[in-house]
Amino acid sequence: MAEATEVLTPDSPEAAAAAFGEGGDVTIIGGGTIMVPLVTHGVVQPNKALILADAGLEGVDQSGTTVTIGAMTSVSALSELDAPLGPCAANLGDSEVRDQATVGGNLCAVAPPEHPTGDLQGAFVALGASVRSTGAGGERIEPVADFLADRDNRLVLDVTYEQPQAGAFESLDRPHTHHPTPLAVSGARLADGSIQLAATGAAPTAVRLPSAEAEASDPDAAGTAALGDVRLVDDAVSSAWYRERILPVLVRRVLEQLG
């Protein structure tokens, strides 16, 4: 490991934003579950690293129907929340990894070539959540889906969503030790009554399933329609063929739960 790495440990959100500046050359260590192994194995060799452990970015704030989750909130702190986010969080990794992994890290997770990652992304997309981040050009608030499309050099501060009327989460569960979720579907009946669906493991990052949403009143038809919204691939944990078979099932089950 490079002795030269400059390690910063800001002690407030403002200090974190200041230390991050415009990003670029800064590696962010949230819980460490993604970045530390990459540093250990020499895949990433940071010049400057920002450790957010003491930056005061954690916490779940529920005021009225608005839920705001700090970037450094652990995944396990979400597991008691309503669906889809709670069960989605509870489905991730194991209890130790959930204690350590953070919301911000999960939103920034890039799928390695072997399997999907970023389990929470789908739940946030379904919830219509927005991400507040900082970096070049200052603070930005945008829908999660937009953030996922353009998240280089951003420091996540928090995520906000309106409590939905109902939510559901279904994942393909192949029981083994260290769960990457090969495929999962999150759904929410939002405050305005509309239904939003999103899938994890069906494209490089989580994707909305607008075609399925359009058929939401017919869960079977919606399941089939969902296949038009995704880019399924073969990887180490599942074939595209199998994902194609299971995605409609998960969509159907989610819609049945949403009622």
């Binding site: 440990t9 530390v36 130790e96 350590q100």
Partner: peptide, 14 residues
């Protein structure tokens, strides 16, 4: 609290 020590940067637990 139980932690995977391989996932923990030492500077984060000074």
């Amino acid at each position: 609290a139980p932690r995977r020590s391989c996932l923990t940067a030492v500077a984060a637990i000074d």
